[in-house]
């Protein structure tokens, strides 16, 4: 499931129960809220796992990080999983520094993320 190239954050149809959301090139308050909204709508629509793809994301600012934490909280409260993919080295370091890596799984690509999620099949309806 190769995503179309980075642009404004947009959701993608993933495997059953999994939504792939693209973060966009700069995750700030505006983009962060868009991501948050997409994630909420997907979770309300029955998704049990969220893959947030950071391909092409150059920077995530501290407000963006706080909104991502909100997404993680929201997913956790609904017993859904979150995987971050295609992170740049800078973003990985940032997430490590701020403790996000303790809360979410990270994968090289969406495929790798889906493979990780497959290991938790019971969580995913339709599998």
């Amino acid at each position: 499931m190769e995503p179309e190239l980075p642009g404004p954050p947009a959701p993608s149809e993933g495997a059953a129960g999994v939504a792939i959301i693209y973060a966009g090139d700069y995750v700030n308050k505006l983009n962060g809220q868009r991501i948050e909204r997409e994630c909420r709508l997907r979770l309300e629509g029955g998704c049990r796992a969220l893959v947030i793809n950071f391909r092409g994301t150059e920077l995530v600012n501290s407000i963006g990080v706080s909104l991502l934490l909100g997404v993680i909280d929201m997913a956790e409260s609904r017993e859904a999983r979150v995987v971050f993919t295609n992170l740049s080295r800078h973003t990985v370091k940032l997430f490590e520094l701020l403790g996000l890596t303790r809360l979410v799984a990270m994968a090289e690509s969406d495929e790798a993320a889906l493979a990780t999620l497959e290991e938790f099949t019971p969580l995913l309806p339709g599998h």
């Binding site: 501290s62 407000i63 990080v65 909100g70 809360l103």
Partner: peptide
């Protein structure tokens, strides 16, 4: 859990 805001200076220093 990490706090959600107030990292600005810490980040800049890093």
């Amino acid at each position: 859990r990490p706090k959600r805001r107030g990292w600005g200076l810490k980040l800049i220093r890093s």
